[in-house]
Design a protein around this nucleic acid. Sequence first.
DNA 1: AGCCGCTTGTGAATGCGTGCACAAAATCCG
DNA 2: CGGATTTTGTGCACGCATTCACAAGCGGCT
Lengths: 267, 267
Amino acid sequence: MARVQRDGGDDAEPTAELPAVRDQGPSAVNGRKVPMAADKVRSIPEAAVARLAVYLRVLSGMAEQGAVTVSSEELATAAGVNSAKLRKDLSYIGTYGTRGVGYEVDVLTVEIERVLGLTRQQKVAVVGIGNLGHALANYGGFPGRGFPVEALFDVDPDLIGIPVGGLPVNHIEDIPDICATRKIAIGVIATPPAAAQAVCDRLVEGGVHCVLNFAPVVLQVPGHVEVRKVDLAIELQILSFHVARNAEQRVSRRTAAARASSNGEVV
Amino acid sequence: MARVQRDGGDDAEPTAELPAVRDQGPSAVNGRKVPMAADKVRSIPEAAVARLAVYLRVLSGMAEQGAVTVSSEELATAAGVNSAKLRKDLSYIGTYGTRGVGYEVDVLTVEIERVLGLTRQQKVAVVGIGNLGHALANYGGFPGRGFPVEALFDVDPDLIGIPVGGLPVNHIEDIPDICATRKIAIGVIATPPAAAQAVCDRLVEGGVHCVLNFAPVVLQVPGHVEVRKVDLAIELQILSFHVARNAEQRVSRRTAAARASSNGEVV
DNA sequence: AGCCGCTTGTGAATGCGTGCACAAAATCCG
DNA sequence: CGGATTTTGTGCACGCATTCACAAGCGGCT
Ligand SMILES: NC(=O)c1ccc[n+]([C@@H]2O[C@H](COP(=O)([O-])OP(=O)(O)OC[C@H]3O[C@@H](n4cnc5c(N)ncnc54)[C@H](O)[C@@H]3O)[C@@H](O)[C@H]2O)c1
Ligand SMILES: NC(=O)c1ccc[n+]([C@@H]2O[C@H](COP(=O)([O-])OP(=O)(O)OC[C@H]3O[C@@H](n4cnc5c(N)ncnc54)[C@H](O)[C@@H]3O)[C@@H](O)[C@H]2O)c1
């Protein structure tokens, strides 16, 4: 699996069509429950969306190796999931497989991209050009995948105007203005925690509906704004929990083994 | 073995005890199914662990502001979750609240830290000291939270020996050796995707049981190794999906509104 | 053509996580 | 001292997610 980043760019295909989110299930229109505002448009599980993105990357790797079709089993193991789960995930976006054969790699790629809204580029702004912000601004993997970084912001006067990754840093008070005029879709917050909420507010003011937050704080946003957080400290703590759990399991297993052996049992 | 270990009550004070992982559910010990190796020791939901880490941070913020006790409602809103969920999460680790009052901030802090295994420091190694690796190595938030970075690795000969964040960079072929001798608990992979698997193998070889992977690849590891991945491209794609979905909802709402208004309905 | 083997797509079963709602506990207050 | 008030801890029900298992469909082979 020789993944080569920078998958050229098949960002072609303006595909003026709608993302075609399925909404009907087995029995779509039966008035059971009718929970007031039955906006049952949202049908594809959040967890599945995350995996679709993984499949997409695996697929692009396979396409590079010249694969034309792929079975659910292959794709699933490559993506590290159960094949049944993969098929169910794919079934949410339509039926693009051929029984007895598998899926056509490029068809599947296009369809997943469409559902994920990747046919249109989503412009990104990064706020807080410190250690992390520099890494993000310089990272080539985002533009290459349809997420061009089109604005940088900071408060530090020494940074304003300096180009980072080919883009000059602007002052945070221009966030609403610039985001609105450049039609920024996604704001990335890499400021210190204390500044994150204020920055977020400015982004929302500028019409940004999606925020990726690296600062370890819980952001407060209006309902129509989607926030995802990446919290490395929490990731480490989850891992730490597993260390502790495993250690304890080892201990209890050892005592169990000791007990067993003292009983003459075989473990 | 019918140990329904309902931690009998207030073992509060003596902190030196084991994490006391609960294992029983409603009907703990009935031989139904008996799925071969019934190591049902793991009882605290993964999702809850992640939230516990969030609570911990909120708590530390509250402690700084001099709060002594906190109610589930306060803590929940500060952490951005439902208060019932918070109480359920806390119930997994024991009963440390006082009805009618709330939780003592420092008691709760200590208990969560214990369950997460944060009473012991977990040593961290970072592999791949590029853009991202530099940011990680320089980040002060990790040591401050009990995760000292104690080893850095790269292949680039220009980097070997150079101190980054006060720690010299070592060559990746020394990973197994150094990780074993320094008792590294967590390995962080920030290399290009193509190198990630090989690096991971070396970490495992060095006795590292936990891996945090920033490279966009699915790592293959033996069963006892825990991997968490942080994949920014996927985060962006999930956000992109929501942009697409919302856009479509807006469209369908608009058409619905048009239809409704043409019918004389009120929307 | 017709059968056979392979793979998809999906009903159904199970399990997990969430949120409600309330009894139990503890404090406060008159 | 007893009841009002507050807040925890959890039983329960519901909905989402995962997994199984298999019929339906497709291509290839004879
Ligand atoms: N560096 C890491 O590896 C790492 C890891 C985990 C989490 N984080 C989090 O990411 C965030 C950034 O980390 P970092 O290491 O890049 O920090 P940093 O201190 O290197 O950079 C912060 C940047 O934000 C700027 N800034 C400060 N106040 C601002 C404001 N009000 N508006 C806009 N910009 C402002 C600063 O000028 C600086 O350039 C922090 O919240 C940190 O906790 C970083
Ligand atoms: N920079 C970002 O903001 C960002 C964002 C998302 C994902 N990522 C991912 O994080 C990883 C690192 O990104 P980066 O921007 O720091 O890349 P980078 O190119 O700046 O750094 C990579 C580093 O890894 C080292 N390296 C190369 N091969 C190695 C090997 N076999 N063993 C050890 N080290 C090796 C290189 O010498 C370099 O120092 C990549 O997988 C990238 O896809 C980065």
